[in-house]
């Protein structure tokens, strides 16, 4: 590998890492901060991708589809929180696992009924449909770089929201002691509904903007689910900063793993997770 290709692989790794952060960001919020184990995270990712596909083929524009789909997924998230999740906050995690596993089945079957089982493609918006030549035979799609930009913005916004705003303070407080926050006169129920809906919308949003890159297909959610949990666990539960660091680490490890040691590329991420957990059981940025 000469130096130019090393740099390109570095870019690939960082870009993939940012993409992972995007996909895992919703889970960081719902699992990392609210402490709800949401196995259906991948399903919301899938719902987002299918919404992007069906709405963009109706409206002819991915941007319009995303603008239409975000409110829909926020409503979906709020409805699910009100009807289902709300009743499980005080219960054992096992109940959440059962509920969200059930939701995987429900969403997968609904997807099959509503949208069918075909593979679909979503067109890259014309404005971003270009490539930047890097070498004589390799170029880099502008859309990938644009997604990286969106990921960085999103990461900054999330960090700011959780760490620097009053709402973020209430969320964190609510996560550590719900009853106390409530007795201080804060409507914790409303806050939980909002945060949960935001987590769902983030997962769906990731599916939407990733749809032109990944295509839209059945079971696409289960492919991202495990890696999302790995990101949150390596990063440390509850830390947006940690999720970002973990995503970038995983992105680089997978990219260079595939190129340098292809035989074991499949397990590199999990070895990385094991090493991190042995070294810091609470994750990179988690509080012990």
């Amino acid at each position: 590998m000469d130096f130019a290709f090393f740099l390109i692989q570095l870019l690939n790794g960082l870009q993939y890492g940012l993409l992972l952060f995007l996909v895992a960001s919703g889970l960081t919020l719902v699992f990392g901060i609210m402490g709800i184990i949401n196995l259906a995270h991948g399903s919301f990712y899938m719902v987002g991708a299918y919404l992007a596909w069906s709405l963009s083929s109706m409206t002819g524009s991915l941007t319009a589809a995303i603008l239409l789909a975000i409110p829909l997924t926020v409503i979906l998230g709020m409805a699910l929180e009100r009807l289902l999740f709300r009743h499980l906050y005080q219960r054992d995690h096992l109940y959440q696992v059962l509920l969200t596993y059930g939701l995987i089945l429900v969403f997968e079957e609904l997807r099959s009924l509503i949208w069918g089982d075909d593979v679909h493609g979503v067109a890259v918006p014309a404005l971003l449909n270009a490539s930047i030549p890097l070498t004589d035979n390799l170029s880099y799609p502008v859309y990938r770089l644009a997604i990286s930009g969106v990921c960085l913005l999103l990461a900054a916004a999330l960090y700011f929201l959780i760490q620097k705003t009053r709402l973020g303070m209430m969320i964190r407080a609510g996560a550590s002691n719900r009853d106390m926050v409530q007795s201080l006169g804060i409507d914790i129920k409303l806050i939980y509904t909002l945060v949960f809906a935001m987590g769902i919308a983030l997962a769906a949003f990731a599916g939407m903007i990733n749809a032109p890159l990944s295509s839209v297909f059945p079971n696409m959610g289960s492919q991202v689910l495990i890696i999302c949990f790995v990101v949150v666990v390596i990063g440390g539960i509850g830390s947006v900063k940690g999720a970002m660091a973990a995503s970038l680490m995983i992105g680089l490890a997978e990219t260079f793993g595939q190129v340098l040691v292809p035989e074991v590329a499949g397990m590199i991420v999990y070895v990385l997770m094991a090493v991190v957990l042995v070294w810091r059981p609470q994750g990179l940025f988690g509080k012990a």
Binding site: N12, Y16, P218, Q258, V259
Partner: peptide, 28 residues
């Protein structure tokens, strides 16, 4: 996530690429 291997292909510069993929992975 094919990006790393596509970069590898570009650096090897073969006359042709052959592959086996199916379904959603093939589309991507």
């Amino acid at each position: 996530e094919f990006q790393a291997l596509l970069t590898e292909i570009a650096s090897i510069k073969p006359d042709a690429v052959a592959c086996f993929f199916a379904g959603g992975g093939a589309a991507k």
